[in-house]
Design a protein around this nucleic acid. Structure first.
Length: 272
DNA sequence: AAAGTCCTGCGA
DNA sequence: TCGCAGGACTTT
């Protein structure tokens, strides 16, 4: 479940490796994961130089100097291995890029195929899935965040997962942020004091910063491009800690289903 | 707003 | 062998 910290960690790992490199070949193994017509993307990207890497919400973009930007969304189980020798028999390898003068390839692997590859050519409109994203948590003013949530009627857990409201949160960091802010996942922001929503905003930024500093959370499939794991899963306070004692009060962490997702929380520490 | 769908590996 | 995990999209 790569969320903002995992995608940011990938961006930081790959930026120095890819910036300035020229794409010598685009290999499409599983065209279904590509939103555009694969031929257009191959045509546009071959011979292009990578100008920079970008992150928007949970999307990672390779911005080229002239052609446009190639966007990856890793879904649940997507990976971007940076490999010298490919395993071409690997049934989960769907796409890779080769670079001029370098033996390493940038691969796109995805076991469950929830991931996506999108190409936005220069001058073309931004893909809809990127266009409809809400603001970046680090670009957003706290007052705006409070306003954004206050005008909605739903339960806070579901709202945090809505990428149109704020980009980058998934199930892990929604639960971790709510715990830090001592807010119950079923609480309705319309009924919370503004200062508690403000504290939630601070919690989101804090937990994101800590997770990025730890290379993200490797729960199941998330790995850095060299195959190494992030370390932040060892610092989760509620996610994946069902029936374990709360680190604050010792009460056992509970799990309920909200918006079709498991929500981990402490019923003593987190209130409405 | 909630439920269903996609997909595959894994644990009960 | 079944059901659960979940991001984003579609359907109700």
């Amino acid at each position: 479940m790569p969320e903002l910290p995992e995608v940011e960690s990938l961006k930081r790992y790959l930026s120095p490796l890819l910036s300035g490199k020229v794409i010598s070949a685009v290999r499409v193994i599983h065209p279904a994961l590509i939103q555009n017509r694969p031929h257009d993307l191959i045509q546009a990207l071959t011979g292009e130089k990578i100008a920079a890497l970008e992150r928007r919400g949970k999307f990672l973009g390779l911005k080229t100097e002239k052609a446009g930007t190639l966007w990856f969304h890793l879904g649940m189980t997507g990976q971007l291995p940076w490999k010298d020798v490919l395993e071409l028999k690997d049934p989960h390898l769907h796409f890779y890029l080769e670079f001029r003068g370098i033996s390493h390839k940038l691969c796109f692997r995805d076991i469950r195929k929830f991931g996506k590859i999108l190409f936005a050519g220069t001058g073309q409109p931004e893909p809809r899935s990127l266009r409809q994203l809400g603001p970046e948590p680090f670009d957003l003013a706290k007052e705006k965040f409070i306003f954004l949530l206050k005008e909605r009627t739903g339960k806070i857990k579901g709202l945090l997962l809505n990428q149109r409201l704020i980009a980058g949160l998934g199930n892990i960091y929604a639960d971790e942020s709510l715990f830090r802010a001592q807010i119950h996942p079923k609480a309705r922001p319309s009924r919370l004091k503004a200062e508690r929503i403000g504290r939630l905003f601070d919690s989101i930024q804090e937990v994101f910063k800590e997770a990025i500093a730890n290379g993200g959370s490797s729960i199941d499939d998330y790995r850095l491009p060299d195959g190494s794991r992030g370390e932040f899963q060892n610092k989760h306070q509620v996610y994946g800690r069902k029936k374990s004692p709360c680190i604050v009060c010792g009460n056992l962490i509970r799990v309920i289903v909200l918006s079709g997702r498991s929500s981990h929380f402490c019923s003593e520490c987190q209130k409405y």
